[in-house]
Design a protein around this nucleic acid. Sequence first.
DNA 1: GCTTTACATGAAAGCGCTTTCATTATATAA
DNA 2: TTATATAATGAAAGCGCTTTCATGTAAAGC
Lengths: 335, 335
Amino acid sequence: MTKNKPTIADIAAQADVSISTVSRVLNNTAPVADSTREAVLTAMRTLDYRPNIFARGLASGQSMTVGVLTQHIHSPLYASLIRGILEEMDLSPYTPLFVDGYWEPEREERLVETLLRRRVDGLIVLGGKMPTEKLQEIATQVPLIIFGHQVPGLENQCLQLDNFDGAYRATEHLISLGHRRIAHVTGNLTHADAVERREGYLQALRDNRIEPLSDLIAEGEFTEQSGVLAIEMLLSRGRTFSAVFAANDESAYGVRLACYRRGIRVPQDMSLVGFDDIRPSAYTTPPLTTVHQPTREIGSAAARAMLKLMNGEAYKLPHIAAELVIRESTARNIK
Amino acid sequence: MTKNKPTIADIAAQADVSISTVSRVLNNTAPVADSTREAVLTAMRTLDYRPNIFARGLASGQSMTVGVLTQHIHSPLYASLIRGILEEMDLSPYTPLFVDGYWEPEREERLVETLLRRRVDGLIVLGGKMPTEKLQEIATQVPLIIFGHQVPGLENQCLQLDNFDGAYRATEHLISLGHRRIAHVTGNLTHADAVERREGYLQALRDNRIEPLSDLIAEGEFTEQSGVLAIEMLLSRGRTFSAVFAANDESAYGVRLACYRRGIRVPQDMSLVGFDDIRPSAYTTPPLTTVHQPTREIGSAAARAMLKLMNGEAYKLPHIAAELVIRESTARNIK
DNA sequence: GCTTTACATGAAAGCGCTTTCATTATATAA
DNA sequence: TTATATAATGAAAGCGCTTTCATGTAAAGC
């Protein structure tokens, strides 16, 4: 299976130079005569040489690897963040190493440990539920960029979406369409995201002199099925409402389906707004009005910052504004 | 940032033993007296020791890493395959290293090269367009498990879904509902998957004495947007049809949306079948009838096989049958 | 023409681990 | 008792690379 792989020494012998010289052409770390360089390169080619990454890592102390802790890699939002990171890293000599925390703090800690064991040169944390102190501790050990947490002391390493503002805009949009009774399907309230979005919803109501009603709020957990359940619950409470703001697109899909089953038309009978703007949302029936998260950009911004950070260069994280995308799931309230 | 990390020598000094002994308790590679072991473990704990993976890899020749080449990590299908792999690998000492080929053969080759440079102990290839010969060559260098290619000589390392059979069943289902004019939105026909699915569709028609009409076939490219375009094209050709079989769920979403816009009701006026059964398909309106791919299982089967393969143990890859999931986007033809 | 500088290269010392080989102490067999 | 296997440990040789440090040679400065 594995033949004896050529080493730097083989190249040196073949090219009739010392191993130091080979290393030099490999890394461009000191001037080498053109003729020598040619000879070395030729030798590498003919022997099909691949530098041993372990030897290199051991000697240099660098792994040329960046760890990325994601959550639910199969969820469109994280997949898209990853895509952004991938695109940026691709242009660099670093390889990203992805692990999935499943939103389970213990698991996350374990995985970070794995990544540190693998001697990643930097770590990008996307979301998750790791405690603030843990993140602070990690930051002392490795260059760290964080999305989805606000960590005191690490302000300029944190990239955050304005959940509050996004939710506020979504709600305000519904109000501007004449809706007064606006229900809200929250996310899992152990997530900060869910709480912030709920706050934005509540604040928008209050600012428009609409009294928030607890009867119009149901807790979901960011999944389609929970959206179905939440809306059933809401409907069963007997309070009427003409619009729903769901804490994310997946739960909005659930709401949509439940309405469909009951013959409630969207948007004629019920307006619906989601959050995140994941891929399929532009193609649901009707296409979903939602709050856009520029996830791909967030991903590449995080990666870009990481590359700078590892090099000790200056960088700044962009401010990420949520943006409302108005499609066809919302309409003027005709009551 | 990085303090001087403790090495095996520090542990040895602290525990007053030789480094060999430390290595032994680390790897359980030879008997060590209980008291000694205790001392070493304590030393490790107090010094917060983490073995250096490079040194270990260099000395042992193993990276404890498995490379995984995926395609479009953000597509639900691949995300789900990954999930399966993750779950299985999690139980092993190996760490998966994911890269995304974007369905671009040159890119795929480059990434495989990167993985081999990283000295992965095994390689899982999911889909993609790498030429058969390339795969055969790779197989000589590293333990290889493949999903989505049928490579001569590597039959028992290839895991394949029966696209033909799945498409056949989907089409047959429509026929059994009384449909005769069944359109097909293909995938990108440079993918073997797309071709096989089309063949299944054609064969089902023929077996039921329905003549396939080229007017009823439009080429898509596995995306929502291409589904929209394909159905517009189909409709514009003037041939009537009462059902559509789309080559994957995403393009079925596009078909669904285009119908919605034109006031064509699904399933009353038009039956629709997809392929893949990605997550959102159970929550579209109406929920989509589709061919289920047990992606998570495929992923974990691949991972399991890889673990065995690397250990030189016997394994066998399961046969993967496609299964039709009948939901609400198909109905009896009432014409 | 002789010293100074830059360029091009080689020798050798690690980097932190695994793994043979050798050694000592202890237990078992003869 | 002596020989012999067994357990427990240490010494030391790599693994393949990077990186000082030293050396030799050619170009430049006075």
